[in-house]
Design a protein around this nucleic acid. Sequence first.
RNA 1: GCUCUCGUAGCUCAGCCUGGAUAGAGCAACUCCCUCCUAAGGCGUAGGUCGAAGGUUCAAAUCCUUCCGAGAGCGCCA
Length: 558
Amino acid sequence: MKSEVISALKVTGLDEKSITDLIEIPKESSHGDYSFPCFVLSKKLKKNPVEIAREIASKIKSKEFEKVEAVGPYVNFFLDSKKNASDILQKIIKMKDKYGSSDVGKGKKFMIEFSQPNTHKAFHVGHIRGTSLGESIARIREFSGYKVTRVNYSGDTGMHIAKWLWAYLKFHKGEEIRDDESWFANIYVEAVQKLKDNESGEMEVAEINKKLDEKKDSKLIKLWKDTRSKSISAWKPIYKDLDVKFNKHFFESQTESAGKKIANELVKNGLAIISDGATIMDLKKYNLGVWVLLRNDRTVLYSAKDLELARNKFLNYKMGESLVITAAEQNLHFKQLQKTLELMNFKNWEKYNHLGFESVRLPEGKMSSRTGKNILYADFRNELVQAAKEEILKRDNIDEKELNARALAIAVSAIKYSMLKQDTNKVIIFNKEESIKFEGDTGPYLLYSYARANSILDKAKYKASAKIKIDSININERTLINELSRFPDLVVEASKFLSPSGIAHYSYNLAQTFNEFYHSCPVLGSAEERFRLCLVSCFIQVLGNALKLLGIPVLKEM
RNA sequence: GCUCUCGUAGCUCAGCCUGGAUAGAGCAACUCCCUCCUAAGGCGUAGGUCGAAGGUUCAAAUCCUUCCGAGAGCGCCA
Protein backbone atom coordinates (compact mmCIF):
# COMPACT_ATOMS: atom_id res chain seq x y z
CA MET A 1 0.00 0.00 0.00
CA LYS A 2 2.83 2.31 0.87
CA SER A 3 4.64 0.99 -2.19
CA GLU A 4 1.84 2.30 -4.40
CA VAL A 5 2.26 5.73 -2.90
CA ILE A 6 5.99 5.57 -3.52
CA SER A 7 5.66 4.55 -7.13
CA ALA A 8 3.03 7.19 -7.74
CA LEU A 9 5.40 9.79 -6.34
CA LYS A 10 8.07 8.96 -8.89
CA VAL A 11 6.50 11.76 -10.93
CA THR A 12 8.43 14.09 -8.65
CA GLY A 13 11.68 12.84 -10.15
CA LEU A 14 13.03 11.91 -6.74
CA ASP A 15 14.55 8.49 -6.11
CA GLU A 16 12.76 5.84 -4.13
CA LYS A 17 14.88 6.26 -1.00
CA SER A 18 14.23 9.97 -0.60
CA ILE A 19 10.54 9.52 -1.30
CA THR A 20 10.33 6.83 1.37
CA ASP A 21 12.06 9.11 3.87
CA LEU A 22 9.73 11.99 3.17
CA ILE A 23 6.40 10.17 3.27
CA GLU A 24 4.49 10.68 6.48
CA ILE A 25 1.46 9.16 8.10
CA PRO A 26 -0.69 12.16 9.00
CA LYS A 27 -1.83 12.62 12.57
CA GLU A 28 -5.30 13.42 11.43
CA SER A 29 -7.29 10.98 9.32
CA SER A 30 -8.85 13.81 7.34
CA HIS A 31 -5.39 14.29 5.87
CA GLY A 32 -5.45 10.84 4.35
CA ASP A 33 -3.51 7.65 4.93
CA TYR A 34 -0.20 8.93 3.62
CA SER A 35 1.10 12.36 3.01
CA PHE A 36 3.94 13.90 1.08
CA PRO A 37 5.36 17.28 2.14
CA CYS A 38 6.79 19.38 -0.68
CA PHE A 39 9.23 21.58 1.21
CA VAL A 40 12.34 19.74 0.07
CA LEU A 41 11.26 19.95 -3.55
CA SER A 42 10.46 23.58 -3.06
CA LYS A 43 14.05 24.31 -2.20
CA LYS A 44 15.33 22.27 -5.10
CA LEU A 45 12.99 23.73 -7.70
CA LYS A 46 12.94 27.19 -6.11
CA LYS A 47 9.18 27.19 -6.32
CA ASN A 48 6.32 27.65 -3.93
CA PRO A 49 5.61 24.31 -2.20
CA VAL A 50 1.86 24.90 -2.42
CA GLU A 51 2.12 25.11 -6.19
CA ILE A 52 4.32 22.03 -6.37
CA ALA A 53 1.82 20.04 -4.33
CA ARG A 54 -0.96 21.05 -6.66
CA GLU A 55 1.06 19.99 -9.72
CA ILE A 56 1.99 16.61 -8.26
CA ALA A 57 -1.57 15.86 -7.26
CA SER A 58 -2.85 16.64 -10.73
CA LYS A 59 -0.21 14.43 -12.35
CA ILE A 60 -1.06 11.33 -10.32
CA LYS A 61 -3.77 9.26 -11.89
CA SER A 62 -4.03 5.92 -10.20
CA LYS A 63 -6.97 3.69 -9.52
CA GLU A 64 -5.22 2.47 -6.39
CA PHE A 65 -6.31 5.53 -4.50
CA GLU A 66 -9.70 6.72 -3.49
CA LYS A 67 -8.42 10.26 -3.64
CA VAL A 68 -5.19 12.20 -4.06
CA GLU A 69 -5.40 15.83 -3.11
CA ALA A 70 -3.16 18.80 -2.50
CA VAL A 71 -3.74 20.61 0.75
CA GLY A 72 -1.39 23.53 1.16
CA PRO A 73 2.16 22.25 0.75
CA TYR A 74 1.11 18.60 1.19
CA VAL A 75 -0.07 15.93 -1.20
CA ASN A 76 -2.46 13.65 0.66
CA PHE A 77 -3.18 10.08 -0.40
CA PHE A 78 -6.39 8.28 0.52
CA LEU A 79 -6.29 4.52 0.10
CA ASP A 80 -9.26 2.45 -0.90
CA SER A 81 -10.78 2.47 2.56
CA LYS A 82 -13.00 -0.59 2.18
CA LYS A 83 -10.20 -2.79 0.95
CA ASN A 84 -7.82 -1.38 3.52
CA ALA A 85 -10.33 -1.96 6.32
CA SER A 86 -11.05 -5.48 5.24
CA ASP A 87 -7.32 -6.30 5.05
CA ILE A 88 -6.72 -5.08 8.59
CA LEU A 89 -9.72 -6.81 10.12
CA GLN A 90 -8.90 -10.03 8.33
CA LYS A 91 -5.40 -9.95 9.71
CA ILE A 92 -6.69 -9.51 13.26
CA ILE A 93 -9.26 -12.28 12.89
CA LYS A 94 -6.63 -14.60 11.55
CA MET A 95 -3.93 -13.88 14.08
CA LYS A 96 -6.12 -13.56 17.19
CA ASP A 97 -3.94 -13.59 20.33
CA LYS A 98 -0.87 -13.29 18.12
CA TYR A 99 -1.90 -10.05 16.47
CA GLY A 100 0.91 -7.62 17.20
CA SER A 101 3.50 -10.31 17.86
CA SER A 102 6.70 -10.51 15.88
CA ASP A 103 9.85 -12.55 15.58
CA VAL A 104 12.38 -9.75 16.07
CA GLY A 105 13.72 -11.62 19.10
CA LYS A 106 13.59 -15.08 17.59
CA GLY A 107 16.34 -17.31 18.93
CA LYS A 108 17.43 -14.70 21.48
CA LYS A 109 17.52 -15.21 25.21
CA PHE A 110 16.55 -12.36 27.46
CA MET A 111 16.92 -12.41 31.22
CA ILE A 112 15.09 -9.80 33.21
CA GLU A 113 15.56 -9.15 36.90
CA PHE A 114 12.95 -7.06 38.64
CA SER A 115 10.85 -6.47 41.76
CA GLN A 116 13.67 -7.22 44.26
CA PRO A 117 11.88 -6.76 47.56
CA ASN A 118 14.03 -7.10 50.65
CA THR A 119 13.04 -9.47 53.39
CA HIS A 120 12.16 -7.92 56.76
CA LYS A 121 11.02 -4.72 55.05
CA ALA A 122 7.91 -3.17 53.57
CA PHE A 123 6.61 -4.03 50.13
CA HIS A 124 5.20 -0.61 49.40
CA VAL A 125 3.58 1.13 46.48
CA GLY A 126 7.01 2.09 45.14
CA HIS A 127 7.85 -1.58 44.65
CA ILE A 128 4.77 -1.97 42.48
CA ARG A 129 6.24 0.29 39.84
CA GLY A 130 9.28 -1.89 39.28
CA THR A 131 7.25 -5.08 39.49
CA SER A 132 4.63 -3.93 36.98
CA LEU A 133 7.29 -2.54 34.69
CA GLY A 134 9.42 -5.68 34.72
CA GLU A 135 6.50 -8.00 34.13
CA SER A 136 5.24 -5.89 31.26
CA ILE A 137 8.65 -5.68 29.59
CA ALA A 138 8.97 -9.46 29.97
CA ARG A 139 5.61 -9.96 28.26
CA ILE A 140 6.42 -7.52 25.48
CA ARG A 141 9.72 -9.28 24.82
CA GLU A 142 8.04 -12.69 24.79
CA PHE A 143 5.46 -11.37 22.35
CA SER A 144 8.36 -10.21 20.18
CA GLY A 145 9.83 -13.67 20.02
CA TYR A 146 12.42 -13.64 22.81
CA LYS A 147 12.93 -16.52 25.18
CA VAL A 148 12.47 -14.69 28.46
CA THR A 149 13.72 -15.70 31.89
CA ARG A 150 12.26 -13.73 34.79
CA VAL A 151 14.36 -13.53 37.91
CA ASN A 152 13.97 -11.92 41.28
CA TYR A 153 16.72 -10.93 43.68
CA SER A 154 16.18 -10.19 47.34
CA GLY A 155 18.28 -8.74 50.09
CA ASP A 156 17.89 -11.26 52.88
CA THR A 157 21.14 -10.30 54.57
CA GLY A 158 23.13 -7.19 55.31
CA MET A 159 22.74 -4.24 57.59
CA HIS A 160 18.97 -3.86 57.38
CA ILE A 161 18.52 -7.44 58.58
CA ALA A 162 20.92 -6.85 61.44
CA LYS A 163 18.90 -3.80 62.46
CA TRP A 164 15.64 -5.69 62.24
CA LEU A 165 16.94 -8.61 64.30
CA TRP A 166 18.34 -6.18 66.84
CA ALA A 167 14.94 -4.52 67.30
CA TYR A 168 13.16 -7.86 67.46
CA LEU A 169 15.50 -9.27 70.09
CA LYS A 170 15.43 -6.07 72.08
CA PHE A 171 11.74 -5.16 72.00
CA HIS A 172 9.75 -8.10 70.61
CA LYS A 173 11.57 -11.15 71.83
CA GLY A 174 9.36 -14.25 71.89
CA GLU A 175 6.69 -12.61 69.78
CA GLU A 176 5.14 -14.90 67.18
CA ILE A 177 6.73 -14.53 63.75
CA ARG A 178 4.03 -13.68 61.24
CA ASP A 179 3.98 -13.85 57.44
CA ASP A 180 2.62 -10.36 57.42
CA GLU A 181 4.24 -7.57 55.49
CA SER A 182 3.18 -4.77 57.82
CA TRP A 183 4.42 -6.59 60.93
CA PHE A 184 7.87 -6.81 59.40
CA ALA A 185 7.71 -3.25 58.11
CA ASN A 186 6.78 -1.84 61.52
CA ILE A 187 9.61 -3.55 63.35
CA TYR A 188 12.06 -2.23 60.79
CA VAL A 189 10.77 1.30 61.21
CA GLU A 190 11.06 0.88 64.98
CA ALA A 191 14.67 -0.27 64.58
CA VAL A 192 15.61 2.79 62.56
CA GLN A 193 13.91 5.12 65.04
CA LYS A 194 15.49 3.58 68.13
CA LEU A 195 18.94 3.56 66.55
CA LYS A 196 18.89 7.29 65.95
CA ASP A 197 21.65 8.93 68.04
CA ASN A 198 22.16 5.61 69.78
CA GLU A 199 25.83 4.69 69.65
CA SER A 200 25.66 1.61 71.82
CA GLY A 201 22.73 0.37 69.72
CA GLU A 202 24.75 0.87 66.54
CA MET A 203 27.57 -1.16 68.03
CA GLU A 204 25.17 -3.98 68.92
CA VAL A 205 23.85 -3.96 65.36
CA ALA A 206 27.37 -4.12 63.94
CA GLU A 207 28.01 -7.06 66.23
CA ILE A 208 24.88 -8.86 64.94
CA ASN A 209 25.88 -8.09 61.36
CA LYS A 210 29.32 -9.56 61.97
CA LYS A 211 27.81 -12.70 63.57
CA LEU A 212 25.45 -13.14 60.63
CA ASP A 213 28.39 -12.83 58.32
CA GLU A 214 30.38 -15.48 60.23
CA LYS A 215 27.37 -17.82 60.53
CA LYS A 216 28.59 -19.30 63.85
CA ASP A 217 25.85 -18.21 66.25
CA SER A 218 23.33 -20.98 65.60
CA LYS A 219 20.53 -19.36 67.65
CA LEU A 220 20.81 -16.12 65.74
CA ILE A 221 21.00 -17.97 62.43
CA LYS A 222 17.84 -19.89 63.29
CA LEU A 223 15.98 -16.66 64.06
CA TRP A 224 17.23 -15.20 60.80
CA LYS A 225 16.09 -18.27 58.86
CA ASP A 226 12.63 -18.33 60.46
CA THR A 227 11.95 -14.66 59.97
CA ARG A 228 13.37 -14.76 56.47
CA SER A 229 11.06 -17.51 55.31
CA LYS A 230 7.98 -15.87 56.85
CA SER A 231 8.89 -12.61 55.20
CA ILE A 232 9.18 -14.37 51.84
CA SER A 233 5.78 -16.01 52.34
CA ALA A 234 4.26 -12.58 52.79
CA TRP A 235 5.04 -11.78 49.14
CA LYS A 236 3.11 -14.71 47.72
CA PRO A 237 -0.34 -13.07 47.69
CA ILE A 238 1.16 -9.93 46.17
CA TYR A 239 2.64 -11.74 43.19
CA LYS A 240 -0.58 -13.68 42.83
CA ASP A 241 -2.58 -10.45 42.63
CA LEU A 242 -0.17 -8.99 40.12
CA ASP A 243 0.05 -12.19 38.06
CA VAL A 244 3.82 -12.38 38.22
CA LYS A 245 5.81 -15.61 38.30
CA PHE A 246 9.57 -15.84 38.46
CA ASN A 247 11.70 -18.58 36.96
CA LYS A 248 14.35 -18.07 39.60
CA HIS A 249 14.69 -16.20 42.86
CA PHE A 250 18.21 -15.22 43.88
CA PHE A 251 19.09 -14.14 47.40
CA GLU A 252 21.96 -12.07 48.69
CA SER A 253 22.73 -14.68 51.31
CA GLN A 254 23.70 -16.94 48.42
CA THR A 255 25.93 -14.39 46.73
CA GLU A 256 27.82 -12.90 49.64
CA SER A 257 30.62 -15.38 50.22
CA ALA A 258 31.37 -15.78 46.53
CA GLY A 259 31.11 -12.02 46.20
CA LYS A 260 33.71 -11.57 48.87
CA LYS A 261 35.94 -13.98 47.02
CA ILE A 262 35.61 -11.99 43.81
CA ALA A 263 36.46 -8.81 45.69
CA ASN A 264 39.62 -10.42 47.07
CA GLU A 265 40.60 -11.73 43.64
CA LEU A 266 40.20 -8.25 42.22
CA VAL A 267 42.74 -7.04 44.76
CA LYS A 268 45.13 -9.79 43.73
CA ASN A 269 44.69 -8.88 40.06
CA GLY A 270 45.46 -5.31 40.90
CA LEU A 271 42.05 -4.10 39.73
CA ALA A 272 40.79 -3.30 43.23
CA ILE A 273 42.73 -1.68 46.04
CA ILE A 274 42.52 -1.44 49.81
CA SER A 275 41.84 2.07 51.00
CA ASP A 276 41.17 3.03 54.62
CA GLY A 277 40.75 -0.68 55.28
CA ALA A 278 37.96 -1.04 52.72
CA THR A 279 38.23 -2.83 49.38
CA ILE A 280 37.42 -0.46 46.56
CA MET A 281 37.38 -0.11 42.79
CA ASP A 282 38.83 3.26 41.94
CA LEU A 283 36.88 4.29 38.84
CA LYS A 284 37.61 8.00 39.00
CA LYS A 285 39.38 8.03 35.68
CA TYR A 286 36.16 6.80 34.05
CA ASN A 287 34.27 9.55 35.82
CA LEU A 288 32.51 6.91 37.92
CA GLY A 289 33.95 7.71 41.33
CA VAL A 290 34.81 5.04 43.84
CA TRP A 291 32.97 1.74 44.25
CA VAL A 292 33.29 0.09 47.65
CA LEU A 293 33.20 -3.71 47.62
CA LEU A 294 34.06 -4.70 51.20
CA ARG A 295 33.75 -2.70 54.42
CA ASN A 296 36.80 -2.13 56.57
CA ASP A 297 35.57 -4.95 58.84
CA ARG A 298 35.75 -7.21 55.74
CA THR A 299 31.98 -7.71 55.56
CA VAL A 300 30.59 -7.68 52.05
CA LEU A 301 28.54 -4.96 50.38
CA TYR A 302 25.83 -4.92 47.72
CA SER A 303 28.43 -4.14 45.06
CA ALA A 304 30.49 -7.33 45.51
CA LYS A 305 27.33 -9.41 45.79
CA ASP A 306 26.15 -7.98 42.48
CA LEU A 307 29.41 -9.00 40.82
CA GLU A 308 28.78 -12.55 41.93
CA LEU A 309 25.18 -12.38 40.75
CA ALA A 310 26.36 -11.22 37.34
CA ARG A 311 28.92 -14.02 37.22
CA ASN A 312 26.24 -16.54 38.16
CA LYS A 313 23.87 -15.28 35.47
CA PHE A 314 26.58 -15.36 32.83
CA LEU A 315 27.78 -18.81 33.77
CA ASN A 316 24.59 -20.69 34.43
CA TYR A 317 22.06 -19.10 32.13
CA LYS A 318 24.04 -18.21 29.02
CA MET A 319 21.66 -15.44 28.15
CA GLY A 320 22.20 -13.10 25.25
CA GLU A 321 20.96 -10.03 26.97
CA SER A 322 20.38 -9.40 30.63
CA LEU A 323 18.43 -6.53 32.09
CA VAL A 324 18.20 -5.42 35.68
CA ILE A 325 15.39 -3.08 36.60
CA THR A 326 15.79 -0.99 39.74
CA ALA A 327 15.05 2.45 41.08
CA ALA A 328 16.99 5.18 39.27
CA GLU A 329 18.91 5.97 42.47
CA GLN A 330 21.06 2.99 41.56
CA ASN A 331 22.02 4.22 38.10
CA LEU A 332 25.57 5.01 39.13
CA HIS A 333 25.97 1.70 40.92
CA PHE A 334 25.08 -0.18 37.75
CA LYS A 335 27.44 1.90 35.63
CA GLN A 336 30.17 1.04 38.11
CA LEU A 337 29.17 -2.62 37.98
CA GLN A 338 29.23 -2.69 34.20
CA LYS A 339 32.59 -0.91 34.06
CA THR A 340 34.05 -3.38 36.57
CA LEU A 341 32.75 -6.32 34.54
CA GLU A 342 34.44 -4.79 31.51
CA LEU A 343 37.72 -4.42 33.38
CA MET A 344 37.41 -8.03 34.53
CA ASN A 345 37.10 -9.05 30.88
CA PHE A 346 33.68 -10.58 31.27
CA LYS A 347 32.37 -11.78 27.95
CA ASN A 348 29.24 -9.86 26.91
CA TRP A 349 29.70 -7.32 29.68
CA GLU A 350 28.03 -4.74 27.47
CA LYS A 351 24.88 -6.86 27.40
CA TYR A 352 24.50 -6.69 31.15
CA ASN A 353 22.15 -3.74 31.10
CA HIS A 354 20.27 -1.72 33.62
CA LEU A 355 17.04 0.25 33.47
CA GLY A 356 16.42 2.69 36.30
CA PHE A 357 12.93 3.98 36.95
CA GLU A 358 12.19 7.13 38.89
CA SER A 359 10.64 6.97 42.32
CA VAL A 360 7.04 6.93 43.41
CA ARG A 361 6.57 9.74 45.90
CA LEU A 362 3.94 10.90 48.26
CA PRO A 363 2.82 14.52 47.92
CA GLU A 364 4.80 15.25 51.11
CA GLY A 365 7.99 13.59 49.86
CA LYS A 366 9.88 10.42 49.20
CA MET A 367 8.57 7.05 50.33
CA SER A 368 10.85 5.22 52.66
CA SER A 369 10.77 1.87 54.39
CA ARG A 370 13.22 3.30 56.91
CA THR A 371 10.87 5.91 58.26
CA GLY A 372 7.60 4.15 57.48
CA LYS A 373 6.48 7.13 55.41
CA ASN A 374 4.96 4.96 52.74
CA ILE A 375 1.87 3.11 51.67
CA LEU A 376 2.05 -0.65 52.00
CA TYR A 377 0.87 -2.61 49.03
CA ALA A 378 -1.66 -4.63 50.99
CA ASP A 379 -3.29 -1.56 52.53
CA PHE A 380 -3.58 0.24 49.24
CA ARG A 381 -4.84 -2.83 47.45
CA ASN A 382 -7.55 -3.37 50.03
CA GLU A 383 -8.71 0.20 49.78
CA LEU A 384 -8.96 -0.04 46.01
CA VAL A 385 -10.82 -3.34 46.18
CA GLN A 386 -13.25 -1.79 48.65
CA ALA A 387 -13.82 1.25 46.44
CA ALA A 388 -14.34 -0.99 43.41
CA LYS A 389 -16.89 -3.09 45.29
CA GLU A 390 -18.88 0.00 46.18
CA GLU A 391 -18.93 1.09 42.54
CA ILE A 392 -20.01 -2.35 41.35
CA LEU A 393 -22.81 -2.61 43.89
CA LYS A 394 -24.16 0.75 42.79
CA ARG A 395 -25.11 -0.80 39.46
CA ASP A 396 -25.15 -4.55 39.80
CA ASN A 397 -26.21 -7.19 42.25
CA ILE A 398 -23.90 -10.16 42.04
CA ASP A 399 -22.73 -12.94 44.32
CA GLU A 400 -19.79 -12.58 46.68
CA LYS A 401 -17.34 -14.61 44.63
CA GLU A 402 -17.97 -12.72 41.40
CA LEU A 403 -17.89 -9.45 43.30
CA ASN A 404 -14.48 -10.22 44.75
CA ALA A 405 -13.07 -11.31 41.41
CA ARG A 406 -14.31 -8.22 39.59
CA ALA A 407 -13.20 -5.84 42.32
CA LEU A 408 -9.72 -7.32 42.34
CA ALA A 409 -9.38 -7.04 38.57
CA ILE A 410 -10.49 -3.42 38.73
CA ALA A 411 -8.06 -2.67 41.55
CA VAL A 412 -5.14 -4.32 39.76
CA SER A 413 -5.96 -2.52 36.53
CA ALA A 414 -5.98 0.79 38.37
CA ILE A 415 -2.65 0.09 40.06
CA LYS A 416 -0.79 -1.25 37.06
CA TYR A 417 -2.09 1.22 34.54
CA SER A 418 -1.14 4.18 36.70
CA MET A 419 2.36 2.78 37.11
CA LEU A 420 2.89 1.90 33.46
CA LYS A 421 1.43 4.86 31.63
CA GLN A 422 4.09 7.22 32.90
CA ASP A 423 7.53 7.41 31.37
CA THR A 424 10.13 5.61 33.52
CA ASN A 425 12.31 8.65 34.05
CA LYS A 426 9.51 10.69 35.47
CA VAL A 427 8.73 10.77 39.16
CA ILE A 428 5.22 9.62 40.01
CA ILE A 429 3.55 11.71 42.66
CA PHE A 430 1.28 9.21 44.26
CA ASN A 431 -1.96 10.84 45.26
CA LYS A 432 -4.16 8.32 47.00
CA GLU A 433 -7.40 10.25 46.57
CA GLU A 434 -6.77 10.54 42.84
CA SER A 435 -5.74 6.94 42.45
CA ILE A 436 -9.00 5.46 43.74
CA LYS A 437 -10.96 7.34 41.11
CA PHE A 438 -11.97 5.09 38.24
CA GLU A 439 -12.79 7.67 35.58
CA GLY A 440 -10.90 9.12 32.65
CA ASP A 441 -7.38 8.00 31.86
CA THR A 442 -7.38 4.99 34.18
CA GLY A 443 -7.21 1.20 34.13
CA PRO A 444 -10.90 0.75 34.93
CA TYR A 445 -11.83 2.92 31.93
CA LEU A 446 -10.08 0.35 29.74
CA LEU A 447 -11.85 -2.55 31.42
CA TYR A 448 -15.15 -0.75 31.07
CA SER A 449 -14.69 -0.23 27.35
CA TYR A 450 -13.76 -3.88 26.98
CA ALA A 451 -16.81 -5.05 28.92
CA ARG A 452 -19.17 -2.81 26.97
CA ALA A 453 -17.88 -4.17 23.69
CA ASN A 454 -18.16 -7.67 24.97
CA SER A 455 -21.74 -7.15 25.98
CA ILE A 456 -22.67 -6.30 22.40
CA LEU A 457 -21.22 -9.57 21.13
CA ASP A 458 -22.99 -11.46 23.91
CA LYS A 459 -26.35 -10.03 22.98
CA ALA A 460 -25.78 -10.81 19.32
CA LYS A 461 -24.49 -14.31 20.07
CA TYR A 462 -21.73 -13.38 17.70
CA LYS A 463 -19.41 -15.94 16.19
CA ALA A 464 -16.29 -14.82 14.39
CA SER A 465 -16.13 -15.40 10.68
CA ALA A 466 -13.38 -14.68 8.23
CA LYS A 467 -15.80 -13.32 5.67
CA ILE A 468 -16.05 -9.59 5.84
CA LYS A 469 -18.44 -7.66 3.71
CA ILE A 470 -18.22 -3.91 3.84
CA ASP A 471 -20.86 -1.86 2.05
CA SER A 472 -19.89 1.50 3.37
CA ILE A 473 -17.59 2.87 5.96
CA ASN A 474 -18.02 6.02 8.04
CA ILE A 475 -15.53 8.23 9.85
CA ASN A 476 -15.92 6.52 13.25
CA GLU A 477 -15.42 3.08 11.77
CA ARG A 478 -12.50 4.27 9.74
CA THR A 479 -10.77 5.89 12.71
CA LEU A 480 -11.24 2.80 14.83
CA ILE A 481 -9.78 0.56 12.13
CA ASN A 482 -6.80 2.87 11.70
CA GLU A 483 -6.22 2.67 15.42
CA LEU A 484 -6.37 -1.13 15.33
CA SER A 485 -3.81 -1.22 12.54
CA ARG A 486 -1.23 0.73 14.55
CA PHE A 487 -0.77 -1.92 17.21
CA PRO A 488 1.96 -4.16 15.72
CA ASP A 489 4.36 -1.27 15.10
CA LEU A 490 3.88 -0.05 18.64
CA VAL A 491 4.83 -3.42 20.09
CA VAL A 492 8.05 -3.40 18.12
CA GLU A 493 8.85 0.07 19.48
CA ALA A 494 7.99 -0.94 23.03
CA SER A 495 10.23 -3.99 22.80
CA LYS A 496 13.12 -2.03 21.36
CA PHE A 497 12.98 0.73 23.95
CA LEU A 498 11.93 -1.47 26.87
CA SER A 499 9.01 0.86 27.32
CA PRO A 500 5.46 -0.25 28.07
CA SER A 501 4.19 3.32 28.36
CA GLY A 502 3.53 3.51 24.62
CA ILE A 503 1.32 0.43 24.85
CA ALA A 504 -0.49 2.00 27.80
CA HIS A 505 -1.21 5.22 25.90
CA TYR A 506 -2.25 3.23 22.88
CA SER A 507 -4.70 1.18 24.93
CA TYR A 508 -6.28 4.33 26.21
CA ASN A 509 -6.51 5.92 22.75
CA LEU A 510 -7.99 2.75 21.35
CA ALA A 511 -10.60 2.55 24.10
CA GLN A 512 -11.44 6.20 23.60
CA THR A 513 -11.84 5.71 19.86
CA PHE A 514 -14.07 2.73 20.54
CA ASN A 515 -16.24 4.69 22.95
CA GLU A 516 -16.76 7.36 20.31
CA PHE A 517 -17.75 4.66 17.85
CA TYR A 518 -20.00 3.04 20.44
CA HIS A 519 -21.77 6.28 21.03
CA SER A 520 -22.39 7.24 17.42
CA CYS A 521 -22.74 3.91 15.64
CA PRO A 522 -25.44 1.55 16.84
CA VAL A 523 -24.47 -2.03 16.17
CA LEU A 524 -27.40 -4.29 17.00
CA GLY A 525 -30.23 -3.98 14.54
CA SER A 526 -28.38 -1.59 12.26
CA ALA A 527 -28.05 -2.14 8.51
CA GLU A 528 -24.30 -2.61 9.00
CA GLU A 529 -24.72 -5.05 11.89
CA ARG A 530 -22.48 -7.79 10.49
CA PHE A 531 -19.61 -5.48 9.69
CA ARG A 532 -19.88 -3.62 12.97
CA LEU A 533 -20.00 -6.80 15.01
CA CYS A 534 -16.82 -7.84 13.30
CA LEU A 535 -15.27 -4.50 14.10
CA VAL A 536 -16.29 -4.79 17.75
CA SER A 537 -14.81 -8.24 18.02
CA CYS A 538 -11.55 -7.03 16.51
CA PHE A 539 -11.48 -4.20 19.01
CA ILE A 540 -11.88 -6.69 21.84
CA GLN A 541 -9.09 -8.80 20.44
CA VAL A 542 -6.63 -5.94 20.09
CA LEU A 543 -7.41 -4.21 23.38
CA GLY A 544 -7.16 -7.62 25.03
CA ASN A 545 -3.76 -8.23 23.46
CA ALA A 546 -2.53 -4.81 24.55
CA LEU A 547 -3.74 -5.26 28.12
CA LYS A 548 -2.14 -8.67 28.24
CA LEU A 549 1.19 -7.02 27.45
CA LEU A 550 0.64 -4.60 30.31
CA GLY A 551 -0.20 -7.47 32.63
CA ILE A 552 -3.66 -6.05 33.19
CA PRO A 553 -6.55 -8.52 33.57
CA VAL A 554 -9.78 -8.01 31.63
CA LEU A 555 -13.43 -8.44 32.58
CA LYS A 556 -16.20 -9.62 30.31
CA GLU A 557 -18.74 -7.98 32.55
CA MET A 558 -18.30 -4.99 34.76
C1' G B 1 31.37 21.29 43.38
C1' C B 2 30.75 17.16 39.69
C1' U B 3 27.25 13.61 37.11
C1' C B 4 22.33 12.13 35.69
C1' U B 5 16.96 13.14 35.23
C1' C B 6 12.88 16.39 34.91
C1' G B 7 10.53 21.48 33.50
C1' U B 8 4.34 21.55 28.03
C1' A B 9 -3.15 24.25 30.37
C1' G B 10 -4.93 25.54 37.62
C1' C B 11 -3.33 20.06 38.66
C1' U B 12 -1.41 15.12 36.55
C1' C B 13 0.64 13.80 32.02
C1' A B 14 1.24 12.56 26.06
C1' G B 15 4.11 14.41 22.02
C1' C B 16 10.82 15.04 21.83
C1' C B 17 14.76 9.28 19.77
C1' U B 18 13.11 9.92 13.79
C1' G B 19 11.93 18.51 13.13
C1' G B 20 6.61 19.70 9.27
C1' A B 21 -0.32 20.98 8.43
C1' U B 22 -4.68 24.39 14.02
C1' A B 23 0.65 21.54 20.53
C1' G B 24 -3.04 16.57 22.45
C1' A B 25 -5.45 13.83 26.76
C1' G B 26 -7.36 13.18 31.79
C1' C B 27 -8.69 15.66 36.40
C1' A B 28 -10.85 20.13 38.30
C1' A B 29 -14.74 24.27 36.31
C1' C B 30 -19.18 25.33 33.23
C1' U B 31 -23.12 23.31 29.69
C1' C B 32 -25.72 19.25 27.15
C1' C B 33 -27.00 13.75 26.29
C1' C B 34 -29.77 7.61 29.73
C1' U B 35 -38.14 5.58 26.23
C1' C B 36 -31.33 4.02 22.60
C1' C B 37 -25.95 -2.23 22.53
C1' U B 38 -23.31 -0.98 30.47
C1' A B 39 -23.61 7.24 31.89
C1' A B 40 -17.00 3.68 35.30
C1' G B 41 -19.60 6.68 29.03
C1' G B 42 -20.19 10.49 25.05
C1' C B 43 -20.76 15.84 22.80
C1' G B 44 -19.39 20.85 23.82
C1' U B 45 -17.22 25.57 26.33
C1' A B 46 -13.16 27.63 28.72
C1' G B 47 -8.02 27.10 29.82
C1' G B 48 -0.93 27.30 26.57
C1' U B 49 5.19 33.19 26.21
C1' C B 50 5.85 24.24 25.33
C1' G B 51 11.23 27.15 32.02
C1' A B 52 14.50 31.47 29.60
C1' A B 53 17.86 33.22 25.91
C1' G B 54 20.71 32.32 21.72
C1' G B 55 21.84 29.06 17.42
C1' U B 56 20.91 25.42 13.17
C1' U B 57 16.76 25.03 9.42
C1' C B 58 12.35 26.76 4.23
C1' A B 59 10.22 24.91 9.11
C1' A B 60 11.85 23.91 16.31
C1' A B 61 7.84 21.73 22.02
C1' U B 62 11.16 18.35 19.07
C1' C B 63 18.16 19.13 17.19
C1' C B 64 22.72 22.12 19.40
C1' U B 65 24.78 25.73 23.22
C1' U B 66 24.33 28.56 27.59
C1' C B 67 21.54 29.90 31.74
C1' C B 68 17.51 29.33 35.54
C1' G B 69 14.42 26.16 38.64
C1' A B 70 13.25 21.14 40.89
C1' G B 71 14.77 16.09 42.14
C1' A B 72 18.34 12.10 42.56
C1' G B 73 23.33 10.20 42.94
C1' C B 74 28.43 11.07 44.14
C1' G B 75 33.63 5.60 49.81
C1' C B 76 31.96 1.62 53.73
C1' C B 77 22.66 1.34 52.99
C1' A B 78 20.43 -1.47 49.04
